[in-house]
Amino acid sequence: MIPVIIIGLGVIMLAAAVAAIYFKSLLASIISAGVISLLASVIYLILGSPDVAMTEASIGSGLTTVIFLFALHRVRKGKSDD
Protein backbone atom coordinates (compact mmCIF):
# COMPACT_ATOMS: atom_id res chain seq x y z
CA MET A 1 0.00 0.00 0.00
CA ILE A 2 2.75 2.46 0.96
CA PRO A 3 4.65 2.06 -2.37
CA VAL A 4 1.43 2.80 -4.27
CA ILE A 5 0.95 6.01 -2.28
CA ILE A 6 4.54 7.05 -2.93
CA ILE A 7 4.30 6.37 -6.66
CA GLY A 8 1.04 8.31 -6.87
CA LEU A 9 2.49 11.27 -4.97
CA GLY A 10 5.63 11.10 -7.10
CA VAL A 11 3.71 11.23 -10.36
CA ILE A 12 1.72 14.25 -9.15
CA MET A 13 4.90 15.98 -7.97
CA LEU A 14 6.76 15.40 -11.26
CA ALA A 15 3.72 16.62 -13.22
CA ALA A 16 3.55 19.72 -11.02
CA ALA A 17 7.28 20.33 -11.54
CA VAL A 18 7.01 20.11 -15.34
CA ALA A 19 3.89 22.28 -15.23
CA ALA A 20 5.67 24.86 -13.04
CA ILE A 21 8.32 25.19 -15.75
CA TYR A 22 6.01 25.40 -18.76
CA PHE A 23 3.02 27.38 -17.44
CA LYS A 24 2.68 30.76 -19.16
CA SER A 25 1.29 32.42 -16.03
CA LEU A 26 3.80 33.08 -13.25
CA LEU A 27 1.05 32.83 -10.62
CA ALA A 28 0.23 29.27 -11.76
CA SER A 29 3.94 28.37 -11.68
CA ILE A 30 4.32 29.61 -8.10
CA ILE A 31 1.25 27.66 -6.94
CA SER A 32 2.59 24.51 -8.64
CA ALA A 33 5.91 24.89 -6.83
CA GLY A 34 3.95 25.19 -3.57
CA VAL A 35 2.08 21.95 -4.39
CA ILE A 36 5.44 20.15 -4.83
CA SER A 37 6.55 21.24 -1.35
CA LEU A 38 3.24 20.28 0.24
CA LEU A 39 3.35 16.74 -1.21
CA ALA A 40 7.05 16.44 -0.30
CA SER A 41 6.05 16.89 3.35
CA VAL A 42 3.83 13.77 3.08
CA ILE A 43 6.83 11.87 1.68
CA TYR A 44 8.98 12.98 4.64
CA LEU A 45 6.28 11.74 7.00
CA ILE A 46 6.30 8.31 5.31
CA LEU A 47 10.11 8.24 5.54
CA GLY A 48 9.92 8.67 9.32
CA SER A 49 10.94 12.32 9.72
CA PRO A 50 7.97 14.20 11.19
CA ASP A 51 10.21 17.15 12.14
CA VAL A 52 11.24 17.67 8.53
CA ALA A 53 7.64 17.20 7.40
CA MET A 54 6.45 20.00 9.70
CA THR A 55 9.20 22.31 8.53
CA GLU A 56 8.57 21.62 4.86
CA ALA A 57 4.81 22.04 5.19
CA SER A 58 5.12 25.38 6.98
CA ILE A 59 8.14 26.86 5.20
CA GLY A 60 8.18 25.22 1.77
CA SER A 61 4.53 25.51 0.94
CA GLY A 62 3.61 28.39 3.26
CA LEU A 63 6.17 31.14 3.61
CA THR A 64 8.08 30.50 0.35
CA THR A 65 4.87 30.80 -1.66
CA VAL A 66 3.93 34.00 0.17
CA ILE A 67 7.36 35.54 -0.47
CA PHE A 68 7.13 34.59 -4.17
CA LEU A 69 3.68 36.20 -4.33
CA PHE A 70 4.92 39.41 -2.66
CA ALA A 71 7.79 39.61 -5.16
CA LEU A 72 5.42 38.86 -8.06
CA HIS A 73 3.09 41.63 -6.94
CA ARG A 74 5.98 44.09 -7.01
CA VAL A 75 7.05 43.15 -10.55
CA ARG A 76 3.51 42.68 -11.90
CA LYS A 77 4.08 44.54 -15.14
CA GLY A 78 7.15 42.49 -16.06
CA LYS A 79 6.71 40.59 -19.28
CA SER A 80 6.66 36.82 -18.85
CA ASP A 81 7.34 35.60 -22.38
CA ASP A 82 8.79 32.27 -21.34
Binding site: M54, I59, G62, L63
Partner: peptide, 17 residues
Protein backbone atom coordinates in the same frame (compact mmCIF):
# COMPACT_ATOMS: atom_id res chain seq x y z
CA UNK B 1 7.25 16.13 20.36
CA UNK B 2 8.01 16.72 16.67
CA UNK B 3 8.71 20.37 16.09
CA UNK B 4 10.93 22.91 17.73
CA UNK B 5 12.41 26.34 17.35
CA UNK B 6 12.40 26.53 13.57
CA UNK B 7 8.83 25.26 13.13
CA UNK B 8 7.51 27.35 16.03
CA UNK B 9 9.25 30.44 14.70
CA UNK B 10 7.68 29.92 11.29
CA UNK B 11 4.23 29.51 12.83
CA UNK B 12 4.69 32.80 14.75
CA UNK B 13 5.82 34.52 11.54
CA UNK B 14 2.71 33.24 9.75
CA UNK B 15 0.59 34.68 12.56
CA UNK B 16 2.16 38.07 11.90
CA UNK B 17 1.54 37.50 8.17
Amino acid sequence: TPGGGFQGGVVIASGFL
